[in-house]
Structure formats: structure tokens, C-alpha cells
């Protein structure tokens, strides 16, 4: 007798509308700058789909958004945020402030609460008061302002490192000299580059290339140590400045 159970109860494989496309993103806020970075590998399972798929996008002259998770949702989400920012520009003849973009992203994510964008967002840039800021989101819109945040495949490798190096967790300051409240830009860039080279060593979904966006507050210039790295300056209307620094990561 053949097994009839397969005919009586046909096995239905449910269509899964999500995929996980790897990669890691990271943002660190300084006193008057913010660095937003992401690797450029896109993968599914053990296959590298491409070695160059950007995950970090400039939104305005002072806001940069990094997206990580399901790539199709990520690209669609960035597209819709950019569209809403363009509408805002047409309505108000100015760019939306960073904290308003953060709240916009929350409402846009929560609007999809019951079919979420499977995406972790990190928004970085300069606030209206000229301070560097990082906002991090979960896929359904919970968000908070922070000094630094890592998300994605290697979050569990990078975040503890940042807790130690940025928040000085488990470090004791030398007698009479407290920890600095904010690190200078060259130190932050070194920490970002080290984070990604280390994540590349230990996580298979991280590698190929690194894109770092630097947003500088109004009236600030790049320190010589950073200018020497020859970052590419993106065109802006004046005021805040946005630079891109690219680095190769290991491709294996």
C-alpha cells in the first residue's frame, strides 16, 4: 500500500517573503561630526551575490541612513524615505531636520507593523544644535538616540567592542583624568576601520568593501589626519559637509 498521507494531506510549503542578506552597519556620533559606515557585501546563505551593494545612503546634507537586513525591503524603504524627504523639501523649501527624519522613519516602519520591513535602520547626522547624533531603529520602529550603534550580521561582534572603546565600559580612567565625553574624528575612524576588519576576519557575511560616510557640523573642517586619507566630498548646499571614505576589506 503506497503512503496515502501525502495525497490526503498535501504538504504545503508556505512562500517566505523574506530573506537575510548579511552585512553589517555601524554609526558613531562625535561632538560635531558623525560617522556612518557599512560593508558592501550582499549574500544569501553561503553565496556571495555581489561584492558591491551599498547599504549606506545620503538622505540630506546632514543625514545619512544605513539599512541592513532583507535587501529588497531595505532598498524599497530607502526609496520611500527619500521620496517623503523630497515632498517635505517641496512643501517647506528646506531639508527635514534629523530628529524629524528619525520620527518619520519610526512612523513609516510602524505603519508596516503587521507585515514589517525586515530591516534594521541606523540614522546618523548633525542635529539642529550642531551636535553629532545617531538614531537606531528596530524593524517595527522602536528607536532611540545614542552615541554609537552596530547592527546586522556582526552586531554581536562589534557592539561589545564599541561599548568598550566608545562608552569606556570596563575601563578605569587614570587618576585625575576622566574619560573624554567624545572622541576626536581620527580616533573614531580608526575604531570603525578596526571594527570592520575584525568582523571580516570572524564573520563570513562581512567583507569585500567598506563605505564610511562622515558628516561634519557647520563651520568644521576635516582634521589633517583625516584629510590625508583623501575622502571624497559630496556636493552640498554649504553648512554641513558630507564625505565618503572607501576601504577594501578581505574578499574571502
Amino acid at each position: 500500500m503506497p503512503d496515502m498521507s501525502a495525497i490526503v494531506n498535501p504538504q504545503q510549503r508556505q512562500f517566505n517573503p523574506y530573506a537575510e542578506n548579511g552585512g553589517t552597519i555601524l554609526a558613531i556620533a562625535g561632538a560635531d561630526f558623525t560617522v556612518i559606515a557599512g560593508d558592501t557585501r550582499q549574500s544569501e546563505g553561503y553565496s556571495i551575490q555581489t561584492r558591491y551593494a551599498p547599504k549606506v545612503f545620503r538622505l540630506t546634507d546632514r543625514a545619512v541612513l544605513a539599512v541592513n537586513g532583507f535587501a529588497a525591503d531595505g532598498n524599497m524603504f530607502v526609496k520611500k524615505v527619500k521620496q517623503r524627504l523630497e515632498w517635505y523639501r517641496h512643501a517647506h523649501a528646506k531639508d527635514m531636520p534629523l530628529r524629524a527624519i528619525a520620527r518619520l522613519i519610526q512612523t513609516m516602519l510602524y505603519a508596516q507593523r503587521f507585515f514589517p520591513y525586515y530591516v534594521y535602520n541606523i540614522l546618523g547626522g548633525i542635529e539642529e544644535d550642531g551636535t553629532g547624533a545617531v538614531y537606531s531603529f528596530d524593524p517595527v520602529g522602536s528607536y532611540e538616540r545614542e552615541t554609537c550603534r552596530a547592527a546586522g550580521a556582526a552586531q554581536s561582534l562589534v557592539q561589545p567592542f564599541l561599548d568598550n572603546q566608545i562608552y569606556f565600559k570596563n575601563q578605569t580612567a587614570a587618576q585625575g583624568s576622566p574619560h573624554p565625553a567624545h572622541l576626536p574624528l581620527p580616533d573614531v575612524l580608526s575604531i570603525v576601520i578596526d571594527s570592520f576588519t575584525s568582523a571580516t576576519e570572524r564573520h563570513i557575511e562581512v567583507g569585500d568593501g567598506l563605505e564610511m560616510y562622515i558628516v561634519l557640523a557647520r563651520g568644521r573642517t576635516l582634521p589633517d589626519a583625516v584629510a590625508g586619507l583623501r575622502p571624497q566630498e559630496l556636493p552640498s548646499a554649504g553648512g554641513e559637509k558630507v564625505f565618503v571614505l572607501k576601504r577594501d576589506l578581505k574578499k574571502d
Binding site: P17, Q42, A53, A71
Partner: peptide, 25 residues
Amino acid sequence: AYVDLLGVTYSASTLATGYGAYIAQ
């Protein structure tokens, strides 16, 4: 460039779908 049933897209100088992604790529 590539696009699939999920709407996932990417671009590279060599692309392969299906088994080709494992054997030909």
C-alpha cells in the same frame, strides 16, 4: 543586474541564477 521572486536585486560583472550560482559563478 539580477532580480528574483522576492524583489531582491544586485549587480555584478558576472551573474548566475539557480544551480549556476553554485557551479558556474
